[in-house]
Design a protein around this nucleic acid. Structure first.
Lengths: 149, 149
DNA sequence: ACTAATTGGTGGACAAAAGCCACCATTTAG
DNA sequence: CTAAATGGTGGCTTTTGTCCACCAATTAGT
């Protein structure tokens, strides 16, 4: 992989993450902060979510995650129960309200994606999707990182 | 673009930005914060960089940007001069030191990209690059957003 | 089986990052 | 020629995140 190619990838990273970041900011209108949203979506994503997994996946300090979950719990978005296999660990479960919020967040996220993609004609949209799909597969392949669960 | 495809894109956004974020965190070892690095690179990127452009492009509050630039100035990475065409505006220029730092940041960034891509064989690397390249072109096409300069 | 080290989670104290608001100076619009 | 808009700065607050100490449970060493 030569320097020109690396340059192109770096350009993409700049552009794309920036665009996404901007969109995401304009979405969490109310009630819930960005960190809280991230944790909530991570809980929704994981099979058996525990604070420590979230802390690892999101690379956030465990005490911070603990506090975030506390707030989510106070908002009745998340229930905490002690795990039976390991009584130190807490199992996290979304309440119906919590699930609704996650759904809303996903909807917002989808609209952002649409807002990027809508400027393209059908053929281009297909190309966009195919490229993303390829990258997903390649990332999964080379994916030594990111402990999913 | 149907729901399944959107889902795939959302998955990519999650995975990729997270991976990049984690890598970036482990890089800015010292002296300079993430925000400072971003601003510095934006100054390097823009034709006639001013605080307000940076504030817009990075979607950061202008007072915050003002403070970041102040620190960069104190570190002798950036010079500030009042613009002649508009005496409210400040023109930003990287010092030699500043340019060196930017170069270092770019090198780090490249190493991160390598660390993702190195797990792939040559054919896969080529596919990775091609996908990114396609996305870049499509983003540029549909790019109503992101005022470059 | 028993102590020692490790791990999951919590809370206090604090630092860093980022946002909001009020304000000044200049520029632009009516 | 005043009124609105814009670029920039500083005070203050919120959000985000770190570091440390600690408890309870689990795992490892012997």
């Amino acid at each position: 992989m030569d320097d020109k190619q690396i340059e192109v990838i770096r350009h993409f990273n700049r552009e794309y993450t920036q665009r996404l970041g901007i969109l995401q900011k304009n979405v969490f209108n109310s009630e819930i902060s960005w960190a809280e949203a991230r944790v909530l979506m991570e809980i929704n994503y994981l099979q058996s979510p525990t604070p420590i997994k979230i802390s690892n996946n999101l690379e956030l300090d465990k005490s911070y995650v603990s506090r975030v979950i506390k707030r989510l719990n106070k908002l009745s978005y998340v229930e905490k129960t002690t795990s039976e296999e390991d009584k130190r660990a807490k199992l996290l479960v979304l309440t119906p309200t919590g699930r609704t919020v996650v759904q809303q967040l996903n909807t917002n996220s989808d609209e952002q994606i649409q807002s990027i993609v809508n400027n393209l004609d059908n053929e281009e949209q297909e190309a966009f999707y195919q490229s993303i799909n390829t990258l997903n597969k390649l990332l999964a392949k080379g994916g030594i990182n990111h402990v999913e669960d």
